[in-house]
Write a protein that binds this DNA or RNA. Structure first.
Lengths: 276, 276
DNA sequence: TTGCTCCTCACGTCACGTGAGGTGGC
DNA sequence: TTGCTCCTCACGTCACGTGAGGTGGC
């Protein structure tokens, strides 16, 4: 009977560090976190010994870290089957690409903004808005859901007004009761002015907007995208302050034309602040 | 004589936080760092008061932070003229795009790699390499300079061999005495085998490479790019280990055809490890 | 003995977030 | 008195890097 047991070839942390392209410090951390536990730890000296089999896992961790994937997420990926792992990697990477796309637009905006520091391209005007009844739908939501919510709710409100035999009394608008960004989720209220009382159903409310004066500026579809739209808000806020007024209510966007009927440089909506 | 001094309208940190889209905590940090110092600080209470003029600077900081620009770099940008600031922003952003491009390739590589976990697409062979004289140029350098260095040095060596009346005795190759990445700068040695002694000039050395056996795999121009090339190294290392051998010297890439004469999927070079 | 590699704390980095505990004006 | 806003520490986050001070085998 021929039988011999080959001791598995173990590496010290230094040798394993070199063949895995991970720092010794990182390896000790991954051990502590349970992400990559040495094949053997000497009870006396505490020395960590890694087996050659562990090199693949270590290299995969190293490559995923180069993508800046957080360690928790890497741990999850390592527990998955190949196809699940590919899917999760795809999800992670599309998040990165999305965030880069947002920032790329921000850079373009900043370049224009820095060139013309001090100048404003926005023409701010004022108008009286009479008291009006409006059918509204309000919700707290994050950036991703925002434009879908506005489009859907506007549709729902229009349909309901028509079915009720009432008529709209002006363009729809959206009130931002709070900011919508990573930290804050609004709420946001989609409003449709109506000429007579309509029974609200579901999430709807019928309320009366008081008469007020508002400062506004008209922007194009192009300018309505983040981050360019920030400049429009700034322009109106700036006008209110420079003219010694005070903001009286939450900002709003008034949609006076339909999204699908215009080009990127046509007037699309007003950014407005009630003031006193 | 009509004269009145209007006290500049000052805001508390909370009000300024809302109009600048910066957190109160961030504002206190920026004060401490001297990046955005309040117009006035009450000596008794320590309360910070900001002037309306400071909103523009604060918003610019906020937008630059959304790009993940470090605070030190933001401070530098704020001190620049508009055109300098635009240039610096462009530099910063192209660094980001470059890093994303590298990671995008890495994702593509990882997707292929995960799908075929366990399989290797590389055919590893061995060959005897006789003792040979080579004219070499060695340098420590970073990733950016690497391919230029290889191309230039190869050209310099070929020219010098020709001028000396000697002949090349095989394809040029590059020895990676150390890794070339963010942490490590090689060194890297470009080598050209020669059939007779040549007087080295400048940075050159004439040395004799001992005879050895090497394991190698042939890769295409496409596969030679980071990060795909890592897999080729792994394949050869794996073969050496699985066959009970040991790596005997630094890895090398043997360039047996000219870069400009082939397509991306044609064989381009060998990745080789001497072993014993 | 010297040099090398390994070990465990502990603290630093970066740009904040999150309490803890207290003040001051309406 | 309650609530709101402001203050200053101090500690937590994330994924390590960088010593400090010590051990163990050649």
């Amino acid at each position: 009977m021929m039988s011999h047991t080959t001791a598995p070839p173990l590496m010290t942390i230094g040798a394993f560090s070199r063949s895995s392209r991970l720092s010794v410090k990182a390896l000790r951390l991954y051990d502590q976190l349970g992400l990559l536990v040495p094949a053997r730890i000497d009870a006396d000296s505490g020395y960590r010994y890694y087996s050659a089999d562990q090199v693949d896992r270590a290299r995969l961790i190293s490559l995923l870290r180069r993508l800046d994937m957080p360690l928790q997420r890497i741990a999850a990926v390592l527990d998955m089957s190949a196809s699940e792992a590919v899917a999760e990697l795809g999800r992670f990477w599309s998040e990165v690409e999305e965030s880069v796309a947002v920032r790329r637009r921000l850079v373009a905006y900043l370049e224009r903004h820095l060139e013309g520091r001090g100048e404003t391209m926005y023409d701010v005007r004022t108008r009286q808005v009479p008291k009006q009844r409006a059918l509204t739908i309000q919700r707290a939501l994050t950036v991703e859901g925002l434009s879908d919510f506005i489009m859907e709710s506007t549709g729902v409100l229009y349909t309901h007004v028509e079915k009720s035999g009432a008529k709209t009394a002006g363009p729809s608008f959206v009130i931002y009761h709070g900011e919508v960004n990573e930290d804050s989720d609004g709420p946001v209220e989609v409003c449709l002015p109506v000429d007579s009382d309509v029974d609200p159903v579901g999430e709807m409310t019928l309320r009366t907007e008081p008469a007020h004066t508002e400062a506004y500026t008209t922007i194009t579809l192009q300018q309505c995208k983040f981050p360019g739209i920030l400049e429009a808000y700034s322009a109106v806020e700036g006008w209110i302050q420079e003219n010694g007024h005070e903001i009286a209510a939450s900002p709003r966007e008034v949609y006076f034309v339909e999204h699908s009927k215009i080009g990127p440089d046509d007037p699309f909506c007003d950014v407005a602040y009630p003031f006193r």
